[in-house]
Every structure is written in structure tokens, then in C-alpha cells.
């Protein structure tokens, strides 16, 4: 199996799907001549030409809406947002148009469309460039939300997302576009809505997604030295969520920690805890704990930023808390 980076895995998925389906096109800021702000679409303009790899004006609402309209009449647009921070400009199109169209037309107009881009904080970009919107997206019926940065998962899920007949919000991370992993070549599809156990463990269930999976893996490595075996679950798809994977793990470990980037009020972590407490109340040996951002706009300063983000230290503390250590 080839070892490639996340950006290459995403490019491979998009390229393969564009080769097999002429209705698929990629549109966004800097995706063509500049080769992608984060080089995800490098070389694609050369391969597919300017009608299929399209440099857009800086008009997130506009080109996202263009994608919705094109999807209504049979195209399969991939709309790249330079980051999900900028996609907030397009929330009217995502929430009011893409997500609602099928339902309010009584099933007549599906929107097969992928809206993708990096999500969450990068490094020292301050408040307007460092936030999470995944918790807002999952609370809107009519959309699928995928959040994954493991190269193989990203490839398999991106291919499934492009073939899916619904709006799919696909959340990546610019911090780990260069991180590599084994990725199967050619046809490789991962079903939407199925999570993955990233590490087996007996003592505590740790749910994490996107780049927090890498923090979780570090935490598990460190705690293994102390004899604590952490089971890491990566839902990969946040809407719909693989709840059963979480319940099964908690029934084994009896302890739950959710590690998520973003502010801690009304989050996906809240939902996971709510569902787990409802379904696994008698299995729990400790109240679940969530690790998330401090409730402040992201500061620029490096030390402050590290403190605001849900880091390794706070996760270890949370795990020890549910283990009463």
C-alpha cells in the first residue's frame, strides 16, 4: 500500500471521481492556477481544464449557491472553502438552500454536492481563522457531515461523499494536510456513518475526530506507560453518528471522555454524552467528561493558543478523573 499525505489522499479521491463521472467539478478560491491554497488540488487544472477545476471569485455565498443550483440540475459539484471559517459567509446557501431543497420540494430536487475545506484552528491565526462549526452543521437536518484527517479514511470517505446524493460537509485540517499514512490505491470506499476504532483499550473510551485523533493517539501512548489502556473511537462521520460503536465501547470500558475542538456549549460532545448516559446509564462507572476549547475567541499568542485548545495535558487529566486516579 502506498504511503501518501492527507492532501494527496484527498486529491486522489477527487481525481478518481472526476475521471469516472463528467458531472463532477471542483470550484473554489485558488483551486486552479494557484494549485490550491493548501495544494490539495495541485495539478488538477492541468488534468481537467478550466471548466472542471474552476477558480472562483472570493464570493463564498455566491459560488456555494452556484454549486447548489448546478446540483439541482444534475451536476455533482465539489465546492472548496479555503477554510470553514469563510464558509460562514455561505451558511445561508448551506443551511437554507442545500439542506432544505430536497425536503421542501417534496423529494424532487436532491443536492448531490460536497462542500469541503479545513476546519478548526491552524496555528497562530487568531480569532477569525480558528474556529469550529461542526456542531452547527450536525444540527441541521438534510445534510451529511464528515470530519476526518486520517489519509485512508479521507480518501474512502471523500469518494463516498462525491457519490452521495446529498449535501456533504467535509471537514479537513490544514495542520495535518502533510501527515502521511497508508492509503489503498484505486477504488476504495468507506461507508458514510461508520466509525473506526483507532486503538483498542480496556480502561476508558476516548472519542475524538479530525486532528484531535492525533492528540488522542499521543495521550494513549503516554498513558499506556502507566498501565492505562485507552480505546480511541473516531466516528469519522458526525452526521449521522455511529452511536452504536460508542455504546459498545462504553459497555466494555464503563468510562467515557470526549475530546473535541471547539467551544464547549451545545456541542457534538454534549450530544455523545447525552446519548451515552441515556443508553448506557447502568454501564457507566463515572460521569463522562468532555475536553474542549476554553470559551474565548482564539488568541494569537502561541502559549495562550495552546492553552485554549484541548491539548494532551487536559485530556490526560480528564481520563484520570473518570478513572478516579
Amino acid at each position: 500500500m502506498a504511503i501518501i499525505s492527507l492532501r494527496e489522499a484527498l486529491r486522489q479521491a477527487m481525481t478518481e471521481e472526476m475521471e469516472r463521472d463528467p458531472t463532477v467539478f471542483l470550484m473554489g478560491e485558488e483551486v486552479g492556477e494557484y494549485n490550491g491554497a493548501y495544494k490539495v488540488s495541485k495539478g488538477m487544472l492541468q488534468q481537467f481544464g478550466p471548466m472542471r477545476v474552476v477558480d472562483s471569485p472570493i464570493s463564498e455565498a455566491g459560488f456555494c449557491g452556484l454549486g447548489v443550483g448546478a446540483a439541482m440540475v444534475g451536476m455533482r459539484p465539489i465546492i472548496e472553502m479555503m477554510t470553514w471559517n469563510f464558509a460562514i459567509q455561505a451558511f445561508d446557501q448551506i443551511i437554507n438552500h442545500a439542506a432544505k431543497m430536497l425536503y421542501m420540494s417534496g423529494g424532487q430536487f436532491p443536492i448531490p454536492m460536497v462542500i469541503r475545506g479545513p476546519h478548526g484552528a491552524a496555528h497562530m491565526l487568531s480569532a477569525q481563522h480558528s474556529q469550529c462549526v461542526d456542531h452547527m452543521l450536525v444540527n441541521v437536518p438534510g445534510m451529511i457531515v464528515i470530519s476526518t484527517v486520517i489519509p485512508a479514511d479521507a480518501k474512502g470517505l471523500m469518494k463516498s461523499a462525491i457519490r452521495n446524493n446529498n449535501p456533504v460537509c467535509f471537514l479537513e485540517s490544514e495542520m495535518v494536510y502533510g501527515k502521511e499514512g497508508e492509503v489503498p490505491e484505486g477504488e476504495y470506499l468507506i461507508p458514510i456513518g461508520v466509525g473506526d476504532i483507532k486503538r483498542k483499550g480496556e480502561h476508558v473510551t476516548l472519542v475524538a475526530w479530525n486532528k484531535m485523533v492525533y492528540v488522542a493517539l499521543e495521550v494513549a501512548e503516554e498513558l499506556a506507560q502507566e498501565g492505562i489502556e485507552v480505546e480511541i473511537l473516531d466516528p469519522r462521520t458526525l452526521q449521522p453518528l455511529d452511536e452504536n460503536m460508542i455504546f459498545e465501547s462504553v459497555r466494555k470500558t464503563h468510562r467515557l471522555v470526549v475530546l473535541e475542538e471547539g467551544w464547549g456549549i451545545s456541542t457534538i460532545g454534549n450530544y455523545i454524552v447525552d446519548r451515552t448516559v441515556t443508553e448506557c446509564f447502568d454501564d457507566l462507572d463515572a460521569p463522562p467528561v468532555r475536553v474542549h476549547n476554553h470559551f474565548v475567541p482564539m488568541p494569537y499568542n502561541e502559549t495562550l493558543e495552546h492553552e485554549v485548545l484541548p491539548n494532551k495535558e487536559r485530556t490526560i487529566e480528564a481520563i484520570k478523573k473518570v478513572l478516579y486516579r
Partner: peptide, 14 residues
């Protein structure tokens, strides 16, 4: 909100 959608339909036609 429907105006960008029309641009998308135009994109498909083209």
C-alpha cells in the same frame, strides 16, 4: 438566495 442558484444552472447549461 435563488440568484446564485440560477448561476449554477447556467454553469450546467454551459
Amino acid at each position: 438566495g435563488q440568484v446564485p442558484l440560477a448561476a449554477g444552472v447556467g454553469w450546467k447549461i454551459k
